[in-house]
């Protein structure tokens, strides 16, 4: 939802130019999803490996972690659903993406001057979004099956087997995506972390990372 507007209006191109990248509701939903994911990650990893079971102690003990994990998971799913409704348009692959993807090596090596211009989200952000969304769906469905501890009859035990496998594989996919997302959002792409907290980026940041979106915002503001 490309609803950013220059908020305090110095001259365009001025280094103090500020552009709204994430609306308040977008930030709130991102952080509901993010914080609940961290809880799900901690408790889930506790159940994943005996060497990480101490994480269950940090989150209130095994039975408490077991009790809250599915409920927090539902909360995460709601936030994910909201983000899907808000961002699915922005997350579709475009022609610009295909051109950009050919220069992925330049992006990794921080040779951003070689990158073609890109819209509000780049290919990596879009892929992160879709991996989280589809894995989230798999986690929800398998999680519900795991939640019904006592209600799956013996003849349906294949459902238990499928659920444990799907839940683990989907969770691992989200963990891989999550590691990259946190690294890129905090350490690698400076300015990204503040944008998801207070919502704003500088004009220069928008021009460098999301040129097409920047120009779109500018022309929208000039009308």
């Amino acid at each position: 939802m490309s609803s950013g507007m220059p908020t305090d209006a110095p001259a365009p191109g001025h280094s103090h130019e500020r552009i709204l990248r994430y609306r308040f509701a977008e930030r709130v939903m991102h952080w509901i999803a993010g914080l609940s994911y961290v809880y799900l990650l901690m408790t889930g990893l506790a159940f994943w490996s005996p060497y990480l079971f101490w994480l269950a102690d940090l989150t209130g003990g095994g039975p408490i972690a077991r009790f809250w994990h599915p409920w927090v998971g539902l909360g995460w799913c709601v936030a994910m659903l909201w983000m899907y409704a808000a961002w699915r348009g922005d997350m579709r692959a475009t022609e610009a993406d295909r051109a950009w993807a050919k220069h992925l090596g330049d992006y990794i090596r921080n040779q951003d001057e070689n990158l073609p211009p890109i819209g509000r989200f780049n290919v990596g952000q879009k892929q992160f979004f879709w991996i989280m969304l589809y894995s989230g769906l798999a986690l929800l469905l398998s999680g519900v099956a795991l939640w019904l501890v006592n209600d799956i009859p013996w003849n349906w035990r294949w459902l238990r087997y499928t659920a444990v496998l799907v839940h683990a594989v989907a969770a691992l996919l989200t963990i891989g995506a999550f590691i990259l997302h946190v690294y890129m959002g905090t350490a690698m792409v400076r300015g990204g972390f503040t944008s998801i907290i207070r919502g704003e980026v500088t004009g220069a940041w928008a021009r460098m990372h999301h040129r097409l979106w920047y120009e779109q915002m500018k022309s929208a503001a000039e009308k």
């Binding site: 951003d112 500088t202 990372h209």
Partner: peptide, 10 residues
């Protein structure tokens, strides 16, 4: 990736 907040501006 640091954005150079200079007048060349990205």
């Amino acid at each position: 990736k640091v954005v150079e907040e200079t007048k060349n501006n990205g």
